[in-house]
């Protein structure tokens, strides 16, 4: 009996230390929820930002824009929200979940990408080729890149012809992964992913004409919970600076016109 209660006491202390022990940290911390197309670019920007703020911590979480938007409405602990479709950020702003204006930060592009086929000279009309059995796109229902891929296929008159070949990733990164693993031959995915060091050596890509779809205008907000958070404000300013813009344009994003 005594042994058991001593064991239980130790167990409680152990759990207590596990929960409480990790909170000791000198600087501030912010969490950014961002669309998956930013995975590589934003990681680089965070590294640059952290050099100027060595005591602070910036945490990034990548996923589909729609999911994060719903989570922020439910009180998710995100300080900044980068959506692949600026409309998602605007909706949150209109509903009072933002502590800043909606900041446009980039315009994305979609590409045809394949590790095996030479996509260099391909266009959407080549997708009917029988050797292409599966084509991966992000789910148009809630992923902006998937929506734009659908629009482009429809505008090119190809949707009916290739619909049976389409497989849908939960987000644009999963669509890329379907192609990377060889299970789909071609993907219509984000330019910012295929120029990343990870994918750049693994294949070729062709830009999809941006006249075929609505622009992939992207925007971020500082969320309401981060109002007054200096670190979040500093990161928002850093995004507009030269260093961050250089990274963004290296990843193939078009930048919003300079505002002086």
């Amino acid at each position: 009996m005594c042994l058991i209660s001593r064991f239980a006491a130790r167990l409680l202390i152990f759990v207590y230390l596990l929960v409480v022990g990790q909170t000791a940290h000198a600087g501030e911390k912010i969490t950014i929820a961002a669309a998956t197309d930013l995975k590589f670019a934003l990681d680089e920007i965070v590294v640059l930002f952290s050099k100027a703020h060595p005591a602070d911590r910036v945490e990034t979480i990548y996923g589909s824009s729609g999911k994060f938007q719903a989570q922020i409405r439910q009180g998710a602990p995100f300080d900044l929200y980068f959506s692949a479709d600026i409309a998602y950020s605007r909706a949150l702003k209109d509903e009072g979940f933002a502590a800043s204006e909606v900041q446009p930060y980039a315009v994305g592009r979609i590409v045809l990408w394949s590790p095996k086929l030479d996509t260099g000279k391909m266009s959407l009309t080549d997708l009917v080729d029988p050797s292409i059995r599966k084509i991966a796109i992000a789910n148009p229902k809630h992923a902006p890149y998937g929506k734009r891929a659908e629009e482009a296929l429809k505008a090119a008159g190809m949707w009916e012809k290739v619909e049976a070949k389409l497989v849908y990733g939960e987000n644009v990164a999963q669509a890329a992964q379907f192609v990377q693993s060889g299970n789909a031959q071609v993907g219509i995915i984000a330019l910012s992913l295929v120029v990343s060091p990870e994918l750049a050596r693994q294949g070729s890509y062709a830009l999809v004409l941006d006249t075929l779809h609505q622009p992939l205008e992207q925007g971020f907000i500082v969320t309401k919970r981060a109002a007054g958070n200096m670190l979040a404000q500093a990161f928002a300013r850093f995004m507009a600076g030269q260093e961050a813009r250089a990274v963004m344009s290296r990843y193939g994003f078009l930048l919003p016109a300079e505002v002086k």
Binding site: S64, G66, Q69, A70, N139, K141, H142
Partner: peptide, 8 residues
């Protein structure tokens, strides 16, 4: 279900 939730 997941898709419905994602699409709100």
């Amino acid at each position: 279900i997941y898709d419905h939730v994602e699409a709100m």
